[in-house]
């Protein structure tokens, strides 16, 4: 038992670091594919790493009106996503799942968001407050959707531990596939786009004051603080993609400690995350950003899907 826990802890740390290391790459890949769609050559896929290195070298400027909340937020952000990453299975099913389950993961993310919203309000700039209020409007519908979608998987597998959900599904194979899974996947994917400020909810590459949500909140950050906030957001996208891959489609994940299983697991998760990245890039290239007041339409759609997913588990 203790032996298992040590192995799990080691793997959890390795996987969390691997996710952190790969998250800028995922952003780079999304940007590259979007560039191809626009007929551009695009920046190299490792450009986000250079950006990150540059930001860490830059001077950090903090408004003298800002309180401790503003200063502490980047560290809270990166800490909460890293703790959440410890609880999520990446290429193996081993994680610190025995410490906290999916509810902890979702609410660690919410803590990140909560502090980001506070920091947006803290400096008293008009844009920050606007971004914060919009972010909360979106997240008030996304949060229950997210929980319902993952609860569907918890119902199917009979556990709320993310690792156990992956393990049960990966071992039992096709037998546990139900319509509820597809409904929940659709709902979760829409929530993923909303939570990570992607098109059609928000445009990650604009600073146009009328439309920005996420960018408005981090507008006041610079230097190292900005680097941490960016890294945390990229990591959050990575985490949601990994949850989507491993909770809804865990086939291929390493369920034992053999070398072959590990290699298979690494290959499987990389392919799955690549698919998520391609899907995001295609959606961002093919769709326009929605008007803010039309967002509730799409969000309620995903909420309805999640609700029906849970219901149809009992019926079908």
């Amino acid at each position: 038992m203790v032996h298992d826990m040590i192995i799990s802890s080691v793997f959890a740390v390795v996987q969390a670091l691997a996710m952190l290391a790969l998250s800028p790459l995922m952003i780079g890949v999304i940007r590259k594919i979007k560039a191809w769609f626009q007929g551009r050559k695009g920046a190299s896929i490792v450009q986000p790493y250079y950006d990150m290195a540059k930001l860490f070298r830059k001077e950090t400027v903090v408004s003298d009106q800002a309180s401790w909340v503003f200063r502490v937020t980047p560290y809270v952000a990166i800490a909460s996503v890293m703790v959440a990453a410890l609880l999520v299975p990446f290429f193996t099913i081993y994680s610190l799942g025995f410490v906290g389950d999916l509810i902890v993961v979702i609410y660690l993310m919410t803590m990140f968001k909560f502090f980001m919203v506070l920091a947006g309000l803290d400096t008293g700039s008009a844009f920050g407050g606007m971004g914060s209020s919009r972010e909360l409007m979106v997240s008030s519908i996304v949060e229950p959707t997210m929980l319902l979608a993952i609860f569907t998987m918890a119902l199917i597998t009979g556990t709320t531990n993310l690792s156990s959900i992956s393990e049960t599904l990966a071992i039992s194979g096709i037998d546990l596939v139900r319509p509820a899974l597809f409904l929940a996947t659709a709902a979760f994917f829409i929530s993923l786009l909303a939570e990570n400020a992607r098109v059609p909810f928000d445009n990650p590459s604009t600073h146009l004051e009328l439309t920005m949500i996420h960018e408005a909140m981090v507008l006041e950050y610079s230097g190292r603080n900005l680097a941490l906030m960016e890294a945390a957001s990229w990591m959050k996208l990575m985490l949601y993609s990994v949850i989507l891959s491993n909770v809804f489609f865990p086939w291929g994940i390493a369920t034992d400690l053999t070398v072959l299983g590990m290699i298979g697991g690494i290959a499987a998760i990389l392919v799955k995350v690549l698919f998520v990245a391609i899907a995001i890039a295609i959606i961002e290239s093919g769709m326009a950003k929605m008007r803010l007041f039309r967002l509730p339409n799409l969000l309620t759609l995903s909420f309805t899907l999640a609700l029906l997913a849970v219901t149809s588990y009992y019926i079908l």
């Binding site: 096709i174 139900r178 409904l183 899907l305 149809s312």
Partner: peptide, 15 residues
């Protein structure tokens, strides 16, 4: 599974 999946698609499209 196929039958239930298709039925779910029918419900999904109605929504």
């Amino acid at each position: 599974d196929a039958i239930n999946g298709l039925a779910a698609i029918i419900l999904l499209t109605s929504i």
